[in-house]
Design a protein around this nucleic acid. Sequence first.
DNA 1: ACTAATGATTATAG
DNA 2: CTATAATCATTAGT
Length: 256
Amino acid sequence: MRSTQEEEPQDPQLVRLDNMLLAEGVAGPEKGGGAAAAVSAATSSGGMSPDSSLEHSDYKSKLSQIRTIYHTELEKYEQACSEFTTHVMNLLREQSRTRPVSPREIERMVAIIHRKFSSIQTQLKQSTCEAVMILRSRFLDARRKRRNFSKQATEILNEYFYSHLSNPYPSEEAKEELAKQCGITVSQVSNWFGNKRIRYKKNIGKFQEEANLYAMKTAIGATQSEESPHTPNSTGEMKTPSPVFRRDSTAPERTG
DNA sequence: ACTAATGATTATAG
DNA sequence: CTATAATCATTAGT
């Protein structure tokens, strides 16, 4: 016996599909009656914050829909497979009266049928995976629940940006400090500076007033007995606002 | 409703 | 991994 250890070839792609479906609870054991129960439960019991609760219930309901469709189709396929198999078996049996039909041939036929339906199932899994991915990216995308920062936070961030306009790249420590002051996360600070840099560079003219404003603010905060406020020229632009900041590597504050 | 501002994500490169 | 540039999706002003 060569003991063909084929068992189940299962290419890695299919395994990944299965894993993902399982992780998402689509292919796992049946839980709950369905979407309706989850939705009603979530809406009636306002335990969590209204936002996350509502969005999550919506997400779960759609996921449940996908799950139901997936299982229905899967059952249909299996039923069709077995029906077709018995049908073919009957045909073979009928043929065995006029032709010698070896049991091996029967096995091969059955194997072929199963392979075919297996590929169909894989397709179903793939499309289900796609649907889940789309659903995820649609509901778990933080862009959906974006909020503007508080005016104070933007003030602080702008102050830092315009007082470091020549090198607006805050170190990790500075980012943490800013995050703490603004009540946002470090990632949000990074996002803010990334957006600010590119948008400032792209359209310096738009930000001139802002730049002057904050420059003046910081100047006032820094100097107290320098000069009398005589407002030199309040008729037009003050001066050239640093054309383009260059990533100056004069501050390699790398500590980690 | 249309548009600008804005925060977050994606794609690409160093 | 970080920075940039483009793009997306929502908020807010008209």
